[in-house]
Write a protein that binds this DNA or RNA. Structure first.
Lengths: 277, 277
DNA sequence: TCGTCCGTTCCGGGAGCCGGAACGATGATG
DNA sequence: CATCATCGTTCCGGCTCCCGGAACGGACGA
């Protein structure tokens, strides 16, 4: 037990917007339950969600009864079989994911870098699936993780595929928090960089979000040019170095193009997915 | 547990276990929402869950507002970014899954068959993750899918790792429905077959659940010999033929053993997971 | 032994869930 | 073109049952 932090902070602000209905509360607890960082005891979940203890207790009971949560040793709850089944089903049923998977594997094999597919959730990008090299010393990206749009390759890729006003609205007017010394903090500057991304067909994150991490991404478009997500690769700067960007960029763009085409092409396109241009 | 008896029983039995509270209903709708078979319009979801239309409508609205569902064309709802993120997180955070993944890949490569990991949910096994060969003509197994314990290799594997009384209780006393001509329908017969499975270390499903499909599986044990799930391979009978079982069986058993050892060995074991015996 | 923290239970009040019924839009049908 | 079936949506009164502060007992740790 690292640190029983003193609860002397009455000025604790709720992380998410207040969960009003019982359903929102349930979702909040479920969300907290699957977070990878340790323990999920009743008190922890209550603290993380900002909900009163009895409420979380009742919800956990409901979940446990339905098989969505399972009480472990030491009062530690974890995801139950139903939740895992639900998760597996959700990921398997998503059309974009089914189509993206083989392309990601191919992209990873040819570039040697971790390849991933992300979708937009508000002003953030969530990494929904990935194909990782056999030996990743330090994982610069975790499945289910989030990154703000303004400082990530996948974010820029998706923004570039949106109409300018929509992108501007997502970026907002305020200066953005710096994540590294290289982060671009001015929404206007990001917006101004998008046309170049649009032209090139891929975006590059040059340590904008995290030190020593470089990324390349390209948008995936569904029917009607709807932005379905983005395909990208991530690596440490000394592996994914500056000059390889010129050769890897088009590969990422091609991969995203393949997924887009398959997405538009209807179900029959599954068999003819190929890696080359 | 003194169960408070319903004061006025309205003599009403729903096909699925009655969803009483708002949370159960929400879970039911979420579950219906991720089912792969098409369309997820309001009326479809209402029919599948057995809930009244306005209720489903309200829930979908709540989900949509929170990003867990997204209204598509033609009133078709699908999983939203939050739900996909939750799913990805849940699968990535599960310790057994993280450990099983590389072992499954290795097992698939060495056997050439679809390898999967399943956990128990009541009297069924749900397939939580899998590693599939590049070309599977017809997928005999889908992620998130379920199979009864009594007629599947993973089911037998998990049953064999349970104390006999527990296994007997899960099998029940009634004759079981036949899925193929070869299905073993007698709970007693299944129970009697378990010691042999225990001895061999792996179970074989010889077209018990589906025609032309054979499967091999072995149990995965966590700390304290708790049954964490099962590792298995599946294939069509003419590919996964009878004589190869003798050589593939031990491979499956070894793979399950590797996962079990890693599961027990603590977090540090991640780096030394190996495929060979 | 005492103090602390956690999980659990209780219970009265009232917020807000519930779902039958009705309405307008849409597309199929003759 | 007229008709009907079906679907999504809205409304609203009733009353379920959700809510969470408070209290209790047990498990550690000091």
């Amino acid at each position: 037990m690292p640190k029983p932090v003193n609860t002397s902070a009455p000025r604790r602000e709720e992380p998410p917007a207040a969960a009003t209905g019982p359903v929102d509360k349930a979702l909040a607890v479920l969300d907290a339950l699957v977070q990878p960082d340790a323990p999920h005891r009743l008190a922890d979940l209550a603290a993380r969600t900002g909900l009163p203890k009895p409420t979380v207790h009742r919800l956990l009971h409901t979940f446990a009864e339905a098989g969505y949560a399972v009480p472990g040793p030491g009062g530690n709850y974890q995801a139950g079989p139903r939740l895992l089944g639900l998760a597996a089903t959700a990921l398997a049923a998503s059309r974009e994911l089914r189509l993206a998977r083989p392309v990601l594997d191919d992209l990873r094999l040819r570039t040697g870098h971790l390849a991933h597919f992300s979708v937009r959730d508000g002003t953030a990008a969530v990494h929904v699936t990935q194909s990782e090299p056999s030996s990743t010393y330090r994982m610069p990206l975790t499945a289910g993780g989030e990154v703000p749009l303004y400082c990530s390759a996948v974010g820029w890729a998706m923004l570039s595929a949106l109409p300018s006003p929509a992108a501007a609205e997502l970026l907002g007017g305020e200066p953005l928090p710096a994540r590294t010394p290289r982060t671009m903090r001015d929404p206007g500057a990001v917006l101004a960089a998008l046309p170049a991304v649009r032209e090139r067909g891929y975006a590059v994150d040059d340590e904008y979000a995290e030190q020593d991490v470089r990324a390349i991404a390209a948008p995936v478009l569904g029917p009607g040019d709807r932005v379905a997500g983005a395909v990208g690769i991530v690596g440490l700067t000394f592996t994914l170095d500056e000059e390889s960007v010129a050769v890897l960029g088009p590969m990422v763009r091609a991969a995203a193009g393949t997924v887009s085409a398959a997405l538009r092409g209807g179900a029959g396109a599954l068999g003819i997915v190929r890696g080359q241009e």
